[in-house]
Amino acid sequence: MTTTVIEESFRPGELEVRPDGTGNLLGSRCRSCGAHFFPTREACAGCLSQDLDAVKFSTEGVLYTYSVVRQSTPAFEVPYAIGYVDFPEGVRIMGQIAGLEFDEITIGMPMTLSLEPFGENEEGDPLTGYRFRPAEVTND
């Protein structure tokens, strides 16, 4: 489904890309109260502690909601689906949805993080970003 990608992360502070093509979304975890944040924060919004760890989020979550965008900026070819996925650490992260017909997308679906070519840098070199794909393929 996904080819091996080793290009630079499209946003290195938010997405770690490893040479084997795997990666994680990145954020912060409060060492004081345990709250998680995406993207990284300097202080915890819950308890104001500044003692935060860098954290890699799980790659599997649940689709909270979605839409199919049919008008966008020139940077994105329409139509494309976007959605918010709730991850077990307690963060909700937006991304594009791939691997499904638009009318197959359903609230509550298990989704998985997929690292994929996503745009290019100022030199025109391809970058690696992420999309969400269905975590299980239904065979019917």
Binding site: P39, Y64, S67, V69, S72, Y80, Q96, I107, F118
Partner: peptide, 20 residues
């Protein structure tokens, strides 16, 4: 904004709220 970077538009964000 990280959400703009993955294709968020203002109508898209409100559309997601409508879906929910």
């Amino acid at each position: 904004d990280p959400e703009a970077a993955v294709g968020a538009t203002m109508p898209g964000v409100y559309a997601m709220r409508a879906t929910r």
